[in-house]
Write a protein that binds this DNA or RNA. Structure first.
Lengths: 121, 121, 121, 121
DNA sequence: GTGGTCTAGACCACC
DNA sequence: GTGGTCTAGACCACG
């Protein structure tokens, strides 16, 4: 049985949604492939089906998955658009972070060092 | 009367604490100077005193302020340490952000462009 | 093999019924001609026979087709009446839509422009 | 005690959300005014609080209301944008409707008559 | 079997 | 007091 690795900072359904979204964006879950059913996953993770349902609803809202009544839930076939919008969001966060560091007196070179480090890892 | 400029994403006491911390780190509130009393500030901001109290507690926990029983709350005299720890925290966030962007297929050059843009602003 | 072009907003049996009704009203399926059997169509569309059955029931309910026990299902011979009732239904929807737009502050002229555009297309 | 006037076509939480949105767009509920609490409304309408919660979540997602933890839920202060997007959606529906009527052989003049009738009402 | 809705009742952080 | 999350268990339409 897989477990959830909860951070506890976010509600369960949100962490689950984020995790699945990440798997999709990383290409680990293939486009149009079927997800586990609400009940299956609820059973596996020892979580209430309603919570899984909420996670799936959130993912559908984000366009990460689509659900067919009576058939199941499936990974979206339109991931590029998703990836673009997510990139835009995270770039926004990057700007804020860099701005904060600048205000704290961190030099540009120091930041570039961090960026380099991550990219060489 | 000053107002709060709530973003609504965080609890009020947290936003208030963040704001005060920022004022301290920016040098606008001087070291060892006295903060307004809980009741004064609550009155000014039209906020429940409990909320102010919680914000002050949060700031004390972070080491941004210290409280003297019966005298009031004061800005910490050791801001450098504060600035360092905050820098460390934000650098950690920076790493995560950069890692996410790398996974999304964003090139290092694109990131450097964003960093440059912020530093030239 | 024909496929379904599912929109996903409606249940499959409903989308199928709508599509067949449209073919009838457009005169593509001729009056009193025989429809494919439930099993044939289910096979062609790779859909559960129950779903086809339900679509046919829906069409019979609407008066679009009629079924003869042991012989099969046939397009209704009285399409004009059908067209009239459908026109009435859609006109009702039109009224609601126009009323909504009026309440939203859209001028009559703006609506007429839209109507014109569709009719000149 | 107010009642719900359920149509039964949509889930309760959706009908409720639609109804409240309508009241907001009609200007009956004023901007930034406070809504009844989840529990109050649940009690009034004899519906489970979770259902009301879901309706409020839906409205927040649409930008019709905003919720402050521990304070309550409030009508959005930015209704114009809402009205515009809703107008766009309904205009799209109008096009589809008009197109259907055209295909059914309804003349443009007949449609204009209906539009006139609504606007003179 | 599937997703989705609803109820009942508990718990939490926040104000 | 408030909104929000979660569990447990039931019911429905759909395929």
């Amino acid at each position: 049985m897989r477990s959830l690795n909860l951070t506890g900072k976010l509600p369960i359904y949100m962490e689950l949604a984020d995790k699945i979204e990440e798997l999709v964006l990383d290409g680990i879950l293939e486009q149009n492939s079927q997800l586990e059913s609400v009940r299956e996953l609820a059973n596996e993770l020892a979580v209430n089906p309603n919570t899984i349902q909420k996670a799936y609803s959130e993912l559908e809202r984000r366009g990460v998955i689509y659900s067919l009544n009576g058939k199941g839930s499936f990974i979206s076939g339109n991931i590029e658009k998703l990836r673009d919008s997510k990139t835009a969001v995270i770039s926004g966060k990057l700007e804020k972070i860099v701005f904060s560091l600048k205000k704290l007196g961190v030099s540009k070179e120091k930041i570039l060092t961090v960026v380099d480090a991550v990219y060489c890892k």
